[in-house]
Simulated assay, not measured.
Amino acid sequence: MSAEGGTAGYIQHHLTNLVVCADSAKVDGVCKGFWSFHLDTLLVSGVLGLVVFGLMAMLASKASAGIPSKGQNFVEMVVGLVDQQVRDTFHGRSALVTPLAITIFVWVFVMNAMDLIPVDFLPFVAQKVTGNEHLPFKFVPTTDPNLTFGMSISVFFISLFMGLKVKGLGHFMHEVFTVPFGAKLAPVNFLFRVVEEIARPISLSLRLFGNMYAGEMVFILIALLGLYQLPLALPWELFHILIITLQAFVFMMLTIVYMSMAAESH
């Protein structure tokens, strides 16, 4: 696939989201306001979520205590792996943590896995379907910081809810103002707590975004080699399978750790 503007134009085209917004959010005809939506991120992540969780729900409805199918075996293996990580890490009692961890691991993994599809294939299909040869469309949702921040902020609010539910408002506020230096240094404790809470969603989101964005950039640079890309593309593709799996696992494990920290008492 070729893009106007040479190498720089090709790279910029692949790293540009399909943005839609209301007229009030446009500046000189370009969407720059707060209420701008990355339509490609929303569509791809939504479709992937519906497909993968719909498939898991279908397999669960047909689960048998007898000889399981290959699909049932695979889903049970994934669920068992995540459930064991929750049992080893989360020491409280909650019906929320395991489903949350499974959702995060599976969803982040399938979104990351879009990076394994050749960088020009899906954009080419989208351009042919829409008839717009210059249509920007990013097919890897986790290379969009809006999505990774959205997921990390969701985890942040769920962990706050977990802390309030398990400890109660009084105990929760007591920890905020007395840990780690005691009640005499309540303002310092509160400041440290605010910094700690803000750092969690930022680090959680930027870790996933940074790794996936860098991986996508490498694929784009390799694609610029044309017919000479195969010796580099195949090894990077195989190595990237490890990266996308590891990033999904890390995001899941940190979520479990945050839930455990919220539920435990100092």
Results as ranks from 00 to 15, higher is better:
residue 2 S to Y: 08
residue 2 S to D: 11
residue 5 G to Q: 08
residue 5 G to S: 10
residue 10 Y to C: 05
residue 13 H to D: 15
residue 17 N to I: 02
residue 17 N to H: 14
residue 21 C to H: 04
residue 27 V to S: 03
residue 28 D to L: 05
residue 28 D to M: 03
residue 34 F to S: 03
residue 38 H to P: 06
residue 42 L to N: 04
residue 42 L to T: 10
residue 56 M to E: 08
residue 57 A to C: 02
residue 59 L to H: 00
residue 60 A to Y: 00
residue 61 S to V: 09
residue 62 K to S: 08
residue 64 S to I: 11
residue 66 G to T: 12
residue 67 I to Y: 02
residue 67 I to E: 13
residue 69 S to R: 02
residue 69 S to Q: 00
residue 72 Q to E: 08
residue 74 F to R: 06
residue 79 V to D: 11
residue 80 G to R: 13
residue 88 D to E: 11
residue 90 F to M: 10
residue 96 L to C: 02
residue 99 P to D: 10
residue 103 T to F: 15
residue 104 I to F: 12
residue 104 I to Y: 12
residue 111 M to W: 09
residue 114 M to G: 08
residue 115 D to T: 10
residue 115 D to Y: 05
residue 119 V to K: 00
residue 119 V to R: 01
residue 120 D to A: 07
residue 120 D to V: 05
residue 120 D to T: 07
residue 124 F to L: 06
residue 126 A to M: 13
residue 126 A to H: 03
residue 126 A to G: 02
residue 128 K to Q: 09
residue 130 T to C: 02
residue 132 N to I: 08
residue 136 P to Q: 12
residue 137 F to L: 07
residue 141 P to T: 05
residue 142 T to G: 04
residue 143 T to I: 07
residue 153 I to K: 07
residue 157 F to Q: 03
residue 157 F to E: 02
residue 157 F to S: 04
residue 162 M to K: 09
residue 162 M to R: 08
residue 166 V to K: 13
residue 167 K to V: 01
residue 167 K to T: 03
residue 185 L to A: 15
residue 185 L to Q: 13
residue 186 A to N: 11
residue 189 N to S: 15
residue 190 F to S: 13
residue 193 R to T: 13
residue 196 E to A: 15
residue 198 I to D: 09
residue 201 P to A: 05
residue 206 L to Q: 05
residue 207 R to A: 13
residue 208 L to A: 12
residue 208 L to N: 11
residue 210 G to K: 02
residue 212 M to K: 00
residue 212 M to G: 01
residue 213 Y to L: 02
residue 214 A to V: 11
residue 214 A to K: 04
residue 215 G to N: 03
residue 225 L to D: 06
residue 230 L to G: 07
residue 232 L to R: 05
residue 234 L to G: 10
residue 239 F to A: 14
residue 241 I to Q: 02
residue 246 L to D: 02
residue 247 Q to L: 09
residue 249 F to S: 04
residue 257 V to R: 09
residue 259 M to C: 13
residue 261 M to Y: 09
residue 264 E to M: 07
residue 265 S to N: 07
